[in-house]
């Protein structure tokens, strides 16, 4: 049982961080499809920064800086150049996947995985079996509830939510929706960097090309499934993680009798199921109908 919980948290923690970035962006009015790209930039920068300088702190700072920079780029393209946010987000994902590959090839001359000497600090023996998990796992609930409090229990959060839901209402009380979107995207960049770092250095200590494997899109789905609510979306992300952990367990249990690929596809199937459920029962499709337009009237 504990093993199962640990597997779920390992799978789920990076997902939750990136999901929270998606929640922030969605609340501010941007459907951020660049999460996948931001996440892999986080993975790559954390590992390369650590490998090149030997300092974990430098790796994390580099990851945060690059993710914030990429988020600000997305904001600029969407807000100032009036590009369609969906297409710009997908472009950012392409930039992340291609850019990290380019960086690895430029530095190491090959597409091989990059091994880091060590990873994020672990919780330690005080936590028993859970001691193998990284500190970011323990920080996750605080991030989720902190984000909820920020969005629903501070005036800043209300103004940020208003910027996404009714930009004109925000403007008429003197709030600039564009500025709010910049703040939301940059904060999201920080969360994506942490999510990426957790994925690459949490339980593993490697960077491999495309290692995010669609987790950014899964996080995006969790935002829709959770209707943009921080706790609901985090729960959705953890649900996907549970399905992922079940897939891993099933591989061990069934061995070769069931095709591995099918089991690995389970969380992705759960994602599709989640989207279908939210469209069917909660008007998720309606939310989706505003995809791609940045409302500012």
């Amino acid at each position: 049982m504990e093993e199962f919980v640990i597997a779920t948290l390992r799978y789920g923690t990076p997902l939750v961080y990136v999901t929270m970035a998606g929640v922030l962006a969605q609340r501010a009015g941007v459907w951020n499809l660049g999460l996948e790209g931001l996440m892999i930039i986080g993975c790559c920068a954390a590992v390369l920064g650590l490998v090149q300088t030997g300092s974990l702190l430098f790796g994390l700072v580099l990851a945060v800086a690059l993710c914030v920079l990429a988020s600000a780029l997305l904001w600029f393209v969407v807000e100032r150049l009036r590009a369609n946010p969906i297409i710009a987000g997908l472009g950012l994902t392409g930039l992340g996947l291609g850019g990290t590959d380019l960086a690895v090839q430029a530095i190491y001359g090959s597409q091989a995985t990059v091994n880091a000497p060590y990873g994020l600090p672990r919780l330690g023996p005080y936590f028993g079996d859970f001691g193998v998990l990284s500190v970011l796992v323990a920080a996750m609930p605080f991030v989720v509830f902190g984000l909820w409090a920020l969005l629903r229990r501070t005036r800043f959060g209300l103004q940020l939510s208003a910027s996404g839901e009714h930009p004109f209402a925000a403007r008429s009380v003197g709030v600039s929706p564009a500025r709010m979107r910049l703040i939301a995207l940059c904060l999201g960049g920080v969360l994506c960097a942490l999510g990426g770092a957790e994925l690459a250095l949490g339980s593993l200590t490697i960077f491999a090309y495309g290692m995010t494997a669609g987790r950014g899109f899964m996080a995006f789905s969790a935002v829709i499934f959770g209707a943009g609510h921080p706790i609901g979306s985090a729960a959705a992300a953890l649900f996907f993680a549970i399905v992922g952990a079940i897939g891993i367990r099933a591989q061990l249990a069934f061995g070769d009798r069931v095709p591995n690929d099918l089991l690995l596809a389970l969380p992705y199937l759960a994602t599709v199921l989640g989207i279908w459920i939210s469209a069917r029962f909660r008007g998720g499709a309606k939310a989706a109908s505003s995809f791609g337009e940045l409302r500012d009237y």
Binding site: R155, L158, S161, A169
Partner: peptide, 16 residues
């Protein structure tokens, strides 16, 4: 110009 999902109290607060 009030966000539909806000409660009445939140609508007061966000412009205060």
């Amino acid at each position: 110009a009030l966000p539909p999902s806000f409660t009445v109290a939140e609508s007061m607060e966000f412009g205060a």
